[in-house]
């Protein structure tokens, strides 16, 4: 920045170049061999600082930086509020922008079903799935219930007090699912703002059960908490190989949380392919796989239309349960 005039001149020049560039993009030329981001990428997080989505976003952008996977920095940007609605609205406003991506969780499909919003998951460009987060059914270690069967028997007799993150979000969804499939008395569901606090309230005996993600329950395992089952479709490998799935116990409930990457509406194809490729590189890193293993996430990579179809199915499951629970409006 040497002088004002230089700055103005260069600014005008670049504005011209950009304008021409924009026109060219509009003309829908065939995809160039290697599109690359030319300025810092906004990495939108659908939740506040310190939550699960935040950790993933910062981890991924840190890995990109550490392993020099991209020519520009990925800047994590929190857009909390409205269970993701604020973030989605922001990204929707960036239609066609190749320098904005968003990390999502279940609220990405749930929020538009529950709230009256001018958009749905379909408006966004699916880039890739990087992992599926799991849910365990946790009880206190000294609780009398040693199996799901005993838990169900108790929950059929009286309304148990349970806790989860947020209201009308994935934790409550799972409990509602459970009620519907196992014919339980309605749970008294106490919503908290964060998963860590939920686990603390179970350890402290304020509530009887939670469906915390493994990473939230693990600090208290095996000292204080006991998982009774996993909501995954198949058994986990490693530490929790003995943990039964709900499905094999006869309750047809499986649920996993999407940790996926989406772009704004009408994202250029070459940008979409670029980010999908980049996420694959991140996914294949040893650091990333170790992180997933440690926190009992399923490593699952999907991209492009395959991912789009997967999200469609994921959405349908939510629509069914939410309608049955009477949450949609």
């Amino acid at each position: 920045m040497r002088g004002k005039r230089l700055r103005v001149v260069s600014a005008v020049l670049v504005a011209l170049v950009l304008a021409v560039g924009l026109l060219a993009l509009g003309a829908d030329r065939p995809a160039q061999a290697a599109w690359q981001p030319s300025k810092p990428v906004e990495f939108i997080i659908m939740a506040g600082q310190g939550g699960g989505a935040d950790v993933y976003a910062r981890f991924i952008s840190g890995l990109i930086e550490k392993h020099k996977l991209a020519p520009v920095p990925f800047v994590p940007l929190n857009k909390a509020g409205g269970a993701g609605a604020v973030a989605m609205e922001h990204v929707r406003g960036k239609s066609g922008d190749p320098h904005t991506i968003m990390i999502t969780l279940s609220s990405f499909v749930m929020t538009p079903i529950i709230q009256k919003l001018p958009f749905s998951y379909k408006d966004f460009t699916p880039i890739s799935l990087v992992a599926l987060d799991n849910f365990f059914l946790w009880v206190q270690k000294d609780s009398p219930w040693k199996s799901v069967k005993e838990f169900v028997a108790a929950a059929q007799k009286e309304s148990l007090t349970v806790a989860g993150t947020g209201s009308k979000q994935e934790d409550e969804l799972i409990f509602t699912f459970f009620e519907q499939k196992a014919d339980l008395k309605p749970f008294k569901y106490v919503p908290f703002k964060g998963g860590g606090t939920v686990a603390a309230n179970l350890v402290g005996g304020q509530v009887k059960a939670t469906v915390n993600n493994p990473s939230e329950g693990l600090p208290h395992y095996p000292g204080k908490l006991r998982p009774l089952a996993t909501f995954a479709t198949e058994r986990h490998k490693g530490q929790f190989a003995d943990l039964p799935t709900m499905k094999e116990l006869g309750y047809d409930i499986s649920y996993q949380m999407m940790r996926g990457i989406f772009g704004p509406p009408k994202m250029p194809v070459e940008a979409r392919e670029y980010y999908a490729g980049l996420m694959k590189k991140v996914f294949d890193l040893e650091d990333f796989q170790a992180f997933l293993d440690k926190n009992v996430l399923d490593a699952r990579y999907l991209a492009g239309d395959e991912f789009g179809r997967w999200v469609g199915g994921y959405n349908d499951v939510h629509v069914q349960v939410i309608q049955k629970a009477g949450w949609s409006k």
């Binding site: 506040g48 939550g51 950790v55 910062r58 840190g62 860590g196 686990a199 600090p219 208290h220 440690k294």
Partner: peptide, 23 residues
């Protein structure tokens, strides 16, 4: 306990997971 006592602690906690530690 792995429970953040404040919003800032919540972010540091995220760090713990990333460094491969379980609080």
């Amino acid at each position: 306990l792995g429970i953040p006592g404040s919003p800032t602690a919540a972010v540091i906690l995220g760090g713990l997971y990333i460094w491969g530690l379980t609080p």
